[in-house]
């Protein structure tokens, strides 16, 4: 498509990640744009249905447990099951984890395995650094397959930590399928609601850099411990 003001078009394009100035074939999108959209959607869907490699988990020395749901379709339909842990997982946590740690780190693929694959190597050591700088001690970190954020309540009931920080893959978008969130809860136990947690979202290379997100989490956790609370009322 030839634009009236090609330079102006570039300025508009630079100002937004939205798909503008795409041209058309009659009233329909051009072939390239249409296929690009489908390709980005395919990447997002793959990320939902993908899984985190054992190589990454081994490298960072995270052991893995299942949530109550092992099937992806059921995981999508039944968020309540992703918030619970089966007896086998509970046993494993009791065996392998330090009881009642100050800070419990939990990682889950959630809705995007890609998010974990591409960010964990950067955010995790930066998070450990920030805990060390704040003089905080972490328990035994682990990975939960197909968990929901609310799973931190179930984990809280078992391990009784002061704070849980949960790194979990976000619902993928078309701009990126690799966005991760960090959810924080002070003394999470059964009954804790969303509004009592805090979230730092949009963590990926094009958003909040994972190393800086990790660095910030330590200060947030220190503040939560100081104020003995977490929740939306506490500004990030």
């Amino acid at each position: 498509m030839v634009f009236h003001d090609p330079e102006g078009m570039e300025r508009l394009r630079k100002a937004t990640p939205a798909r503008i100035g795409t041209g058309r074939a009659g009233t329909r999108p051009t072939t390239r744009e249409q296929l690009q959209l489908r390709l980005d959607h395919a990447a997002a869907v793959d990320s939902v249905y993908g899984s985190v490699s054992s190589t990454l988990l081994d490298e960072l020395e995270l052991f893995a447990v299942d949530s109550e749901v092992t099937d992806k379709e059921l995981y999508l339909k039944r968020p309540d099951l992703g918030r619970q842990l089966p007896e086998s997982s509970i046993r494993l946590l009791r065996e392998r984890c330090i009881q009642a740690p100050q800070v419990q780190i939990v990682v889950s693929d959630g809705l995007s395995a890609d998010a974990i694959e591409s960010n964990l190597r950067d955010i995790y050591p930066a998070l450990l650094d920030s805990l060390a700088v704040q003089g905080l001690t972490a328990g035994t970190p682990f990975f939960v397959r197909k968990a929901r954020v609310g799973c931190m309540n179930a984990i809280g009931d078992i391990l009784e930590p002061e704070v849980i920080v949960m790194l979990i893959g976000e619902r993928p978008g078309l701009i990126t399928s690799r966005s991760m969130s960090a959810y924080l809860g002070y003394r999470p136990r059964s009954g804790m609601t969303d509004s009592q947690r805090m979230v730092l979202s949009n963590i990926h290379q094009g958003g909040t850099p994972p190393v800086e997100a990790g660095a910030h989490l330590g200060s947030l956790i220190a503040r939560m411990l100081e104020l003995r609370m977490s929740g939306v009322s506490l500004e990030l």
């Binding site: 937004t16 990640p17 939205a18 798909r19 503008i20 795409t22 058309r24 009233t27 329909r28 999108p29 744009e33 959209l37 980005d40 959607h41 619902r171 993928p172 978008g173 078309l174 701009i175």
Partner: peptide, 18 residues
């Protein structure tokens, strides 16, 4: 109407201008 159906803020797809 969303550009090419892709909402770059809310991360979902709707109907496009096309």
């Amino acid at each position: 109407g969303v550009p090419m159906a892709d909402d770059c803020m809310l991360n979902y797809q709707s109907t496009s201008f096309h």
